[in-house]
Simulated assay, not measured.
Amino acid sequence: MMMPANYSVIAENEMSYVNGGASFIDAIGAVTAPIWTLDSVKTFNTNIVTLVGNTFLNKVVGQTVGVLFSGNTTWKEVGNIGKTLFTTNYAGKDIDKNNFGDYAMNALGIAAAVYNLGVAPTKNMVKENVLDFSVNKV
């Protein structure tokens, strides 16, 4: 009986040797599967958002609440909050200033900072520090 050239008669448990065994992707999956559970992926993503948000936090607070409570607030500054908040850190002259990627990443950073402000409590100076009063005797 004639068989095709790529046909071989072997036992079922030997078939993986004919196919070359597990692929590289299968090997990576076998190593990372116990580590990368759904909870660990969620934690990883939350940590990335927190890191990005922490980077932009000073900018967001400074250019919003900082403007409003600076003691020198004018209506012009209040009106420019959105304009100054969404500017990028572009300092070069050779690159197009209308770089959509910079503005998009800046907006994502601002969103991450706002997310951090919404989900994590801020440090309370009254709660964290002991307050003492000194009385000047006359």
Results as ranks from 00 to 15, higher is better:
Ile95Tyr: 12
Thr43Met: 10
Asn19Leu: 15
Lys97Val: 14
Gly79Gln: 06
Asn54Cys: 02
Asn13Phe: 06
Met2Asn: 13
Pro4Met: 09
Gly71Pro: 04
Ala113Met: 07
Ala111Pro: 08
Ser70Trp: 02
Val52Ile: 14
Asn72Ile: 01
Lys137Thr: 04
Glu77Asp: 08
Val130His: 08
Gly21Cys: 01
Leu85Val: 08
Met105Asp: 13
Ser40Lys: 15
Leu117Tyr: 00
Gly20Asn: 10
Gly62Lys: 05
Val49Ser: 07
Pro121Val: 03
Asn45Val: 14
Ile95Thr: 13
Thr87Ala: 07
Asn89Pro: 09
Val114Phe: 00
Ala107Leu: 01
Thr37Gln: 04
Tyr115Gln: 06
Asn89Thr: 12
Gln63Asn: 13
Met105Val: 13
Val138Ser: 14
Asn129Cys: 13
Ala11His: 12
Met1Arg: 15
Gly53Val: 02
Thr55Gln: 14
Gly62His: 04
Glu14Arg: 08
Ile110Phe: 00
Ala112Asp: 04
Val41Ile: 12
Gly82His: 00
Lys97Met: 13
Phe44Val: 08
Tyr17Gln: 14
Leu85Asn: 00
Asn136Met: 13
Val52Ser: 02
Val65Gln: 02
Leu85Arg: 07
Met105Ala: 10
Asp102His: 09
Lys123Ser: 07
Tyr90Lys: 13
Glu14Pro: 05
Phe86Thr: 15
Gly79Met: 03
Trp75Asp: 11
Ser23Tyr: 00
Ala22Cys: 06
Gly82Ala: 01
Lys127Ser: 11
Leu131Tyr: 12
Lys93His: 12
Pro34Ala: 00
Pro34Asn: 03
Asn19His: 13
Asn89Arg: 11
Glu128Trp: 07
Val49Tyr: 02
Leu57Trp: 02
Val67Tyr: 01
Asn58Tyr: 07
Val61Pro: 06
Tyr90Met: 15
Gly92Met: 06
Gly62Thr: 09
Lys93Tyr: 12
Asn124Glu: 04
Met2Ile: 14
Ser8Met: 10
Glu128Ser: 10
Tyr17Leu: 12
Leu57Phe: 06
Asn58His: 05
Phe56Pro: 07
Gly118Met: 11
Glu12Ser: 05
Leu57Cys: 03
Leu68Asn: 00
Ile25Cys: 03
Lys83Cys: 04
Thr84Pro: 09
Asp26Pro: 03
Gly79Pro: 06
Ala113Cys: 09
Ala111Ser: 04
Val126Trp: 10
Ala11Tyr: 05
Ala91Glu: 10
Ala33Phe: 06
Ala27Cys: 04
Val126Thr: 15
Thr32Asn: 03
Thr50Arg: 15
Gly53Thr: 00
Asn124Ile: 05
Val138His: 09
Pro121Gln: 08
Trp36Arg: 11
Phe133Asp: 03
Thr74Tyr: 01
Val138Gly: 13
Ala107Ile: 05
Asn72Val: 02
Val49Trp: 04
Ile10Gln: 13
Glu12Tyr: 04
Met15Pro: 09
Thr55Arg: 12
Asn58Thr: 11
Gly21Met: 03
Val61Tyr: 01
Ala107Cys: 08
Pro4Leu: 06
Asp132Gln: 15
Val52Thr: 11
Asn58Ser: 14
